[in-house]
Write a protein that binds this DNA or RNA. Structure first.
Lengths: 333, 333
DNA sequence: ATGAAAGCGCTAACAA
DNA sequence: TTGTTAGCGCTTTCAT
């Protein structure tokens, strides 16, 4: 591969001038510009990214951390982010944790290594205080619940406690009292992401309903997890079934519904299911899904704007009005 | 940030020894090892990735090119790839073209810049001969139809012409003659990916059915594109409707079906729809989708094994037996 | 408007 | 087993 040195020699100029040309500096005569252009083409020159990074200490790369790319909530979020990043000089590096906190740390370390200049965290596995320690190495924007705001990190957040509270209230008002609660994490471990849990508990309390541990389903993330949970519920005595299951993700909701229908169990009727996310296909499944819609597009866009402002040491005011959750009533409840 | 120099000074050793430790070279006494370890911890040292790359001319990064991440075929393919890459020293860089050939070139250029060591192309926008020119900068594995084999590039491929031929024959045998054909590209422009088109034409010819241009739908990629196509068909006179639509992607098939059902049109009955990919949710939609299943997991795994072998200058025999397409009969046809 | 030269943090050939 | 040293390809003072 050709280097800047060879280009300079070919053009009969110094490396400095070529470098200036590369970086759009002023003070280069049009004549030389042309010479350089010609030399670069003749030698099929492309700047070596590592050298540029090493010298300038900028990677122009933004890390996007998600738990899994196959979850449409995340893939659409990433898509929204990429659209905004595209016209900027930045690139995007998509990183999956698969819900593993250790993996998340490994990814945060990339900030230290200068592989990435900044991070957008679309999912969070570790304690927020640990994440905050990495702020010294570059800006980190977190997305999630408004409770993250007190971390002091820049945040693009929705009110998930309130949304969950309203969702559970909606179920209670429909007359359901035996409510199953399905979470991606572990219910009893109160850490981040407990905002949805708090909303759930608040709604139950208001209706003087006691929390029933056997209705809490932990670590349910994927379509497959939904199948497994569905089968295990079907295998339990029918009088122990919840009347409705509130899930943390539409994918789980969809596979639950499918498992029930396949077994001849009516949804709703025998058992109802509520989703979370309002993913693209949720209106087109066997039983159109009642769910909580997340403003994916807005979250992604605001997060990038915020991060890039931080990278440029400018300020940016997140447009909170775009970040509203709402219940989408369809047929599964 | 601490550098290797500071670590060396702190440990009372030379940078060489520290570098050796970092790269697991032999010939370091345990005593020094410990000293280095301590110094690294004390200084919170992490190697600078750009410097390592520049010096060693290896990025340990594999580029994965897809057209769009929101398409489950691609997100599951990426997922399969990441699982195999994870235990290796390599990282993964996911790159979207959004079907834009120019963007694809920009991504291929990353090979030249040494941002990535090798590429897995999950989608292809440019002529294969153009892509082949980049081979000199690093190994490129392409996935797709077996017709790619004659390009001379390393390939992980399925027989899409045969699968499409069988699919169309299946439709013809069911008595459908007015078959709509929905493609992500442009039908008339015969370039790569025309293998499915060839299978389509072959099946029609065998049944002495003439190609009807008005039944060819070009540039239909996304869920939204499916909606638009569905509406435009509904707006045409009913006697001009195709009896069945063969699509290039389940997402398109699903949104077509949804559009039809919403309008009170029966699927199948008034109009049938066949998909391609066998994406995860296809069995759970309103009308379970008849489709062509692709061995996503196997394609991803074989592609990584092949690429990494190439990077290590070893040989690898792709297991072709895993790369079979098959028709999945459900209810939409 | 252009160039010489120092050095970013790391690896590896060579020496000891 | 350890150290000295010369770059990898680029950007950026500081001169002129």
């Amino acid at each position: 591969m050709a280097t800047i040195k060879e280009v300079a020699k070919h053009a009969g100029l110094s490396v400095t001038t070529v470098s200036r040309y590369l970086n759009n500096h002023p003070y280069i005569s049009d004549e030389k510009k042309e010479k350089i252009q010609k030399a670069m083409e003749a030698l099929d020159y492309t700047p070596n990214a590592a050298a540029t990074q090493l010298r300038s200490n900028k990677s122009y790369t933004i890390g996007i951390i998600v738990s899994r790319i196959t979850n449409p909530y995340f893939s659409y979020l990433i898509d929204a982010i990429e659209q905004v990043v595209k016209p900027t000089p930045y690139h995007t590096l998509i990183l999956q944790t698969y819900d593993d906190p250790k993996e998340e740390v490994r990814l945060l370390d990339m900030l230290k290594q200068r592989t990435i200049d900044g991070i957008i965290m679309c999912s969070i596995e570790n304690d927020i205080s640990l994440i905050k320690q990495y702020k010294q190495y570059g800006p980190i924007v977190v997305t999630g619940d408004i409770s993250l705001k007190k971390s002091g990190l820049p945040v693009v957040a929705t009110d998930q406690e309130e949304a969950t509270y309203l969702a559970i209230k909606y179920l209670l008002d429909k007359g359901y009292t035996e409510i199953g609660y399905c979470t991606g994490g572990i219910f009893s471990k109160s850490k981040h992401g407990s905002s949805r849990k708090n909303g759930f508990i608040k709604a139950l309390n208001e209706h003087h309903i006691e929390l029933n541990d056997s209705r809490i389903y932990n670590n349910v993330h994927t379509i497959d997890d939904g199948f497994k949970l569905g089968r295990s519920i079907l295998n339990s005595p029918k009088n122990e079934w919840p009347e409705v299951i509130f899930t943390s993700s539409d994918e789980v909701a969809i596979s639950l519904i499918h498992t029930f229908i396949e077994a001849g169990v009516k949804v709703p009727g025998d058992i109802a299911v509520m989703g979370y996310d309002n993913q693209p296909l949720t209106s087109m499944i066997q039983v159109p899904l009642t769910t909580v819609s997340q403003p994916v597009q807005a979250i992604g866009e605001e997060a990038v704007h915020l991060l890039i402002s931080l990278l440029n040491e400018e300020s940016y005011e997140v447009n909170e009005d775009r970040l509203m959750l709402e219940i989408v009533e369809r047929k599964s409840v």
